[in-house]
Amino acid sequence: MEVPKHPETIPLELNINGETVELDISAWTTLLDALREHLQLTGTKKGCDHGQCGACTVLVNGKHINSCFTLAAMQTNKEITTIEGLANGENLHPVQDAFIEHDAFQCGYCTPGQICATVGLLNMKKGNTPEEIRDLMSGNICRCGAYANIYKVVEEMKEKGTEGTTSI
């Protein structure tokens, strides 16, 4: 019988929320599992693990991606921002505050992903019509169905010209 190989680990350095962190993980560890299971940055959620729900959305160099669909090893030398990195100390990011104000969540599980997607959208400077906002946000499923309120957040942020993340 062929004896399975030891799951090899590789050393990695990631830049997350402005800090450099070191990891020694299996090569096939996704960025999502690295964040949640190895770095205890559990604000980023696992909803489907297959790029079908958006709960795992994080920002890499200012652009929002599904962290379940990339390996941690592919994201070295990049600036990764997770939900934990959006607030400035006690001060919420305007998008975070607007999510509370508009009650743009219920169970809260998709919320970090929705917020990162909103921030990514602001960074992209896209979403200039209601249809476009709804289409561009469609990669984030909210099973509680808070869409109508999330839409209000994005619309308000667009109207106010809110900045997404300053470092891109």
């Binding site: 790029g51 991606i65 599904n66 669909f69 997607a117 990514g120 990669g139």
Partner: peptide
């Protein structure tokens, strides 16, 4: 195609 996130990757 796909979603904004996926297109970004």
């Amino acid at each position: 195609a796909a979603s904004t996130q996926l297109r970004n990757m």
